[in-house]
């Protein structure tokens, strides 16, 4: 079995796991993304990132319904460098498709944490903004940015593919300008995010951070 990797000083508790499972996961804290020291190189990297936005194929809510038209012939998002990927390890954009139920939120967090940095989150629809349709439901979270950093909100119910395209372009603009630092925000406010997450996810049987 794997050896427990010990970080230098500040380590995660992974307290949701059994002793046996603790062996399976790292307890190292996530690290913020450091831009390249040379600005031109960083700019080039941002340009490249902006033009190859790979979306994690995880339809978390109703929003997924408009991703199909977006990715197929009519709106053909591939021409903007957008592609769907089956696994978090290959993806750079997480599209929160509307509401997140508590059970899904847990999977969203795991998937998000597994994504390689720099990574970006787009939230579709009204529900992640302020609860939307399910603001009084017992099983959905209302303000999504309490649990994960969101780089861009696209309001609508559902947001049409056209506005998704517009949103992707906006995201590209932001990435190129180097303004998308949601992932770093997550690292910086890690404890705050974790405590919020744990407030709603009662059966926290997963490592504190997956990578």
């Amino acid at each position: 079995m794997f050896k427990k990797t010990l970080n230098t000083e500040d380590t995660l508790k992974n307290s949701g796991l059994t002793d046996e499972e603790q062996q399976l996961f790292s307890n190292a804290r996530p690290q913020a993304y450091e831009p390249y020291p040379i600005k031109a190189v960083e700019d080039f990297a941002n340009w490249a990132r902006a033009n190859s936005l790979w979306i994690l194929a995880f339809g978390t809510g109703c929003g997924a319904i408009e991703l199909r038209p977006l990715m197929t012939a009519r709106f053909d998002a591939n021409r903007f460098g957008v592609a769907g990927r089956p696994t978090p390890r290959q993806s750079s954009v997480f599209v929160i498709g509307g509401y997140a139920s508590v059970k899904t939120l847990k999977r969203i967090i795991r998937s998000y944490e597994q994504m390689q940095g720099p990574k970006f989150v787009i939230a579709l629809g009204i529900c992640p903004v302020n609860g939307g349709m399910y603001f009084d439901s017992y099983n959905t979270v209302n303000q999504f940015d309490q649990y994960l950093p969101v780089d861009l909100y696209i309001t609508g119910c559902m947001p049409r593919p056209e506005v998704l395209v517009a949103g992707i372009m906006e995201l590209q603009k932001k990435i190129k300008a180097g303004e998308c630092n949601g992932a770093n925000l997550y690292v910086e406010n890690f404890d705050w995010y974790k405590s919020n997450q744990k407030k709603v996810i009662k059966n926290w049987d997963m490592p504190d951070y997956n990578w």
Binding site: C62, K103, M133, N139
Partner: peptide, 30 residues
């Protein structure tokens, strides 16, 4: 299952008859 549970049947119990028709359409997205 349970990843998409929003509690519609409960939500409907606290919305008036006219309000509910806007909620129910969200049950089956496609």
């Amino acid at each position: 299952v349970g990843y998409l549970h929003r509690g519609f049947e409960k939500l409907m119990e606290r919305r008036s008859f006219i309000q509910n028709f806007t909620v129910v359409c969200r049950i089956a997205v496609p």
